[in-house]
């Protein structure tokens, strides 16, 4: 279980407050207008931004004292998920070991992951020479290799066209089902993914968030009780 307990933070003079839980293996969609604190939440969780108070626990253990790379979270940002000047292979290897040196077993895992994500033929290429879809598969292959139990996705596919976005989502779904990964995903395209979502976290305000199951969310939206801005379909 991922438990976010009364985490409070201030960022650019705005107060934030989060309190919710996610069951292991579930997919949580995080929605709301821009500036409501979706990215800030993920940055707090993965350890890039230190909150003022509160606790984050995974399987009952607090992660607050851990540095970003020791936390059980894999993270993909909106952009710059790959080092443009390093080859795809080095980019993948750095996910396994920051020194870039791999054991034989790690090398095999890397090659298998490359095979799985259809990038085996691109290992010597540099990311800037890849298409947007290829780049997202390299980034996903890296978090797949890291075997982190929780995946934090800050709209990594938002700049892609709908077909590629759907492809990215399929890959996430693939990782989620094959590894049992818990996924937290910030999105502006909830309608494209209602079918795969278990739970929705809706930011109304920096310190007001609704934590709903996807059926409850849909029901309240249908009834007109909820108007969600910042979503496009």
């Amino acid at each position: 279980m991922l438990e976010v307990k009364n985490v409070k933070s201030r960022w650019a003079d705005q107060p934030f407050h989060w309190h919710f839980q996610v069951k292991p293996g579930d997919l949580l969609a995080i929605v709301g207008t821009s500036g409501v604190g979706k990215s800030t939440l993920l940055n707090v969780l993965c350890g890039l931004h230190k909150p003022d108070s509160g606790d984050v626990q995974w399987q009952g253990d607090s992660v607050m004292a851990l540095p970003a790379h020791r936390r059980p979270f894999g993270m993909l940002f909106q952009s710059h998920n790959l080092f443009d000047h390093l080859s795809v292979e080095v980019n993948l290897a750095l996910g396994l070991n920051p020194s870039g040196r791999l054991t034989e077993a790690q090398r095999q895992a890397l090659l298998q992951a490359a095979e799985r994500f259809g990038i085996a033929g691109l290992l010597t290429r540099k990311p800037y020479a890849l298409s947007g879809g290829q780049q997202q598969r390299v980034a996903l292959a890296r978090v797949f290799l890291q075997r982190k139990p929780v995946l934090l996705l800050d709209e990594p596919f938002s700049s892609l066209d709908p077909a590629l976005r759907q492809e990215g989502l399929d890959w996430v779904k693939d990782i989620q089902t094959s590894l049992g990964t818990t996924v937290l995903l910030v999105t502006h395209h909830l309608d494209e993914m209602v079918s795969v979502t278990d739970q929705v976290l809706l930011g109304l305000n920096g310190d007001r968030w609704l934590d709903l199951s996807v059926t409850e969310f849909e029901a309240r939206r249908q009834s007109g009780e909820l108007t969600v801005s910042g979503l496009s379909s």
Partner: peptide, 12 residues
């Protein structure tokens, strides 16, 4: 561009 990635990957 890369400070966040550097921290998430745990570079020295």
């Amino acid at each position: 561009q890369y400070q966040r990635l550097i921290r998430v990957l745990g570079f020295s």
